[in-house]
Design a protein around this nucleic acid. Sequence first.
DNA 1: TCATAATAGTTTGATCACTAATTATTAGCA
DNA 2: TGCTAATAATTAGTGATCAAACTATTATGA
Lengths: 157, 157
Amino acid sequence: MKKYEELLVSLRQVIRAIDLYSKKLSKETGLTSPQLLVLLSIAEHDDAMVKEVAKTINLSSATITSIVDRLEKRGLVTRKRSTTDKRKVGISLTDEGKEIIKDSPKPLQDHFIARFEAMQEWEQSQMLATMQRISTMMDAEDLDASPVLEVGQIDQH
Amino acid sequence: MKKYEELLVSLRQVIRAIDLYSKKLSKETGLTSPQLLVLLSIAEHDDAMVKEVAKTINLSSATITSIVDRLEKRGLVTRKRSTTDKRKVGISLTDEGKEIIKDSPKPLQDHFIARFEAMQEWEQSQMLATMQRISTMMDAEDLDASPVLEVGQIDQH
DNA sequence: TCATAATAGTTTGATCACTAATTATTAGCA
DNA sequence: TGCTAATAATTAGTGATCAAACTATTATGA
């Protein structure tokens, strides 16, 4: 196998690892990862509008609507139409919703960071330099990205 | 910004770049990216089994089945049950299928590969080693994923 | 040989994600 | 004021994805 192929393979493995972890997370909480993301987003900003949530986690309003449907059915969130602007709908966590996210496990990057920080200083620098170089080589350095490990878009401030 | 944050950002950038590229590809070919992946996989290995394709592009057999359903409906592939082992189903490209992928760019970043190949041998090796290490640091997570210590989990069922 | 296990593929039911169309409401402006 | 544009959320339709259940076939071992 050519070297660049191996490189692409390990890249895919990384992507897959991130993906698998989020699935594992889902099993533990009984929520799918988009559901968890929505809950966390609402926890940060109570009484959030559908559109705000959509923007925060970079999904369409339609998708948020359907996820909120399910969360509402499970009694984790409530909807309340705004009185000042009747087009808007505020979403809030129920007590049960708050309870669930309270003991949801850490996201992958926390574990990864721990390992990274355990490395030698020079190793860290080298790893960073390499990763940045790959990013540059893919013309990706100008892309907006947050330090959150999720596959598929999320959170671009 | 902390070093690990920079690392995560560049990792996300790379993931995003790959993602954006595959979306761009989809627009050009009129196929969704999984559909294109399936076609390319079959092009590499004609008369491929569902399971082989599934393994190659890392999806479940069920998913491949449904994608092949659509490709077949569009006349891009054909199915043929094996005579030696009637459980197996071989998938092949039709002429139209071959036509479509012939003028679709490879789902790899041509730029990236060119740049990678232009690097010194030792640089390539180092880049690969680093990427593999990151991969390991994440895979390992999957293995030693200690079940979260739950308080009061002893409850009798 | 024949019962049982393993394998290949499909079906089913759920979730997720998108775009486009629809509904209801508010804002802008002549 | 009243018409039109913009906005917020939802619905509809398509496709992707998986786990689990199911069907058909082949392999295995007593």
